[in-house]
């Protein structure tokens, strides 16, 4: 475990570099295959609408996978993540067009904890809506 960020160099309120992640239908098909989650709400518009959704939606776990990249890209070693949790508050709606959707993620240090660990609070939005709540990671720094 080799974090490239030192515990001594961060303070509560330190912001991590924000990132924007594009999502298209092709992204979701690929994620379905890689994750084994073939729920049709993530690729079949007709089915999604039949169960009351506005359109096809991204896998919550896809959004969770993207959001933690703000932490892992910052710290360098993904093995530095000690805890990671989210609440799925709103779906990421992915229209069938050339643009799809985007997920915007920012993070900041919310607390400095024991053993060189910090708590990072993440904010993830899509189309102006918060898509993750209580999105928190505990990360061990150098």
């Amino acid at each position: 475990m080799t974090a490239k960020i030192a515990y001594a160099d961060v303070e509560v309120g330190t912001e991590l570099p924000a990132q924007t992640f594009p999502v298209t239908r092709a992204t979701l098909v690929r994620y379905a295959g890689a994750s084994g989650d073939f729920n049709p709400i993530h690729w079949n518009e007709k089915f999604a609408k039949e169960v009351g959704l506005p359109d096809v939606i991204a896998h919550g776990m896809f959004t969770m996978a993207e959001a933690i990249r703000v932490v892992t890209d910052w710290v360098g070693d993904p093995g530095a993540v000690v805890e990671y949790g989210v609440r799925f508050t709103k779906p990421v709606v992915v229209p069938n067009d050339d643009e799809g959707a985007t997920i915007e993620v920012s993070g900041k240090i919310a607390a400095k904890l024991d053993d060189n660990t910090v708590r990072v609070d993440l904010t993830a939005t899509s189309a102006g809506q918060k898509v993750l709540g209580m999105s928190r990671a505990v990360v061990r720094l150098a």
Partner: peptide
């Protein structure tokens, strides 16, 4: 590798054994 590519995460710790070892894995 398939999973990392599906979430488009290019961190070498997921695909390059030497890079992972350099981090202590």
């Amino acid at each position: 590798r398939e999973f990392a590519e599906a979430v488009r995460d290019a961190n070498p710790a997921y695909t390059d054994v030497e890079a992972a070892k350099a981090l202590g894995h």
